[in-house]
Simulated scan of single mutants.
Amino acid sequence: MTSEKPGPPDADATRRRARFGTLPERVRVEDMVEEQPATAPDSARDAYNSDEWLVRTCL
């Protein structure tokens, strides 16, 4: 292995360190997840009467 001494920082290295020298800020899990209802509310489905089939069939 060769041991190289770091030379004086040049302008490219300074710019590179300013841009890539730190890690980006941590992103919370809450910020990565978006919750939406799977389906739109359907008022016709909620108005179901469980005895309706009996009335239609027997009368």
Rank of each mutant, 00 (worst) to 15 (best):
S43Q: 09
S3Q: 14
A44T: 10
E4K: 13
D10R: 07
T14I: 14
S3T: 13
E34L: 07
A44Q: 01
P41F: 12
D31S: 13
P9R: 15
R26M: 02
P6C: 10
R17Y: 02
V55K: 11
E4F: 15
E35W: 14
A13F: 12
T14D: 07
E25Y: 11
R26T: 07
M32P: 13
R26S: 03
P37I: 00
D10V: 03
N49R: 10
S43T: 09
S50C: 13
L54P: 10
L59E: 02
R16A: 06
W53V: 00
A11K: 14
D10I: 06
T57G: 00
L23M: 15
R45C: 03
E34C: 05
L54I: 08
R26P: 07
R17V: 05
P9N: 07
L59I: 05
R28V: 05
P6S: 09
F20A: 15
T2G: 13
P8L: 14
M32C: 13
E30D: 10
R15W: 04
R17D: 05
A18S: 00
P41T: 06
D51R: 06
P24C: 03
P9W: 13
R16H: 00
L23D: 01
T22M: 08
E52F: 01
R15T: 07
M32G: 11
A38M: 00
P37K: 08
A13K: 12
E30S: 13
S50L: 09
S3R: 15
P37M: 02
R26F: 00
A40E: 00
D46N: 15
E34T: 08
A44P: 04
F20R: 04
R17H: 05
P8M: 12
V55Q: 02
N49A: 03
G7H: 12
L23K: 13
E35M: 10
P8T: 15
G21Q: 05
L23C: 07
R26E: 01
V55R: 14
T22L: 02
E4P: 12
R19E: 11
E30T: 11
A11H: 06
R56L: 02
P6G: 05
Y48A: 10
D42M: 06
E52P: 03
P37H: 07
P6W: 08
D46F: 06
D31T: 12
C58L: 12
R15A: 12
M1Q: 11
M1G: 14
L54S: 04
R45Y: 10
A40K: 10
V27H: 01
A11F: 08
W53D: 01
C58W: 05
R19I: 09
R15G: 04
E4W: 15
M1R: 07
R17G: 02
T22Q: 05
